[in-house]
């Protein structure tokens, strides 16, 4: 069996990649993808430790996570679409109607 630490490291790495993407990417779609990466990092942890602890809680929660991630994307894409219509761009730093 693979030691739990490996999973932790893997998920941490994924989470950090996602975080890095969020901090550096200005494209809204890439931003979304980075967020998905972070959520998937959480899923890895949950599944791995579900095995470790011998209960299904983590796996069930992962299913919910997947569903929520999808819903989030659906909303996100919608917002990005209206963003594009209004600003003709999906650069998240472009809209500055209001002071940041």
């Amino acid at each position: 069996m693979v030691p739990a630490e490996y999973y932790l490291l893997l998920s941490a790495a994924m989470f950090c990649i996602g975080l890095f993407g969020i901090l550096t990417r200005r494209n809204a779609l890439l931003f979304l993808m980075s967020v998905e990466l972070m959520l998937n990092a959480a899923s890895i942890n949950l599944v791995a430790f579900s095995l470790q602890w011998g209960n299904l809680t983590g796996q069930v929660f992962t299913l919910f996570l997947m569903a929520l991630a999808a819903a989030e994307v659906a909303i996100g894409i919608g917002i990005i679409l209206v963003l594009y219509r209004n600003f003709a761009d999906i650069d998240v730093t472009k809209p500055t109607t209001m002071r940041w």
């Binding site: 299913l63 997947m66 569903a67 999808a70 819903a71 994307v73 659906a74 894409i77 679409l81």
Partner: peptide, 17 residues
């Protein structure tokens, strides 16, 4: 095309559950 894709996301995830 986009509307269909959005619908799909919702209904596909529902199959997961």
């Amino acid at each position: 095309y986009y509307m269909v894709a959005l619908l799909f996301v919702i209904f596909d995830i529902e199959t997961v559950l």
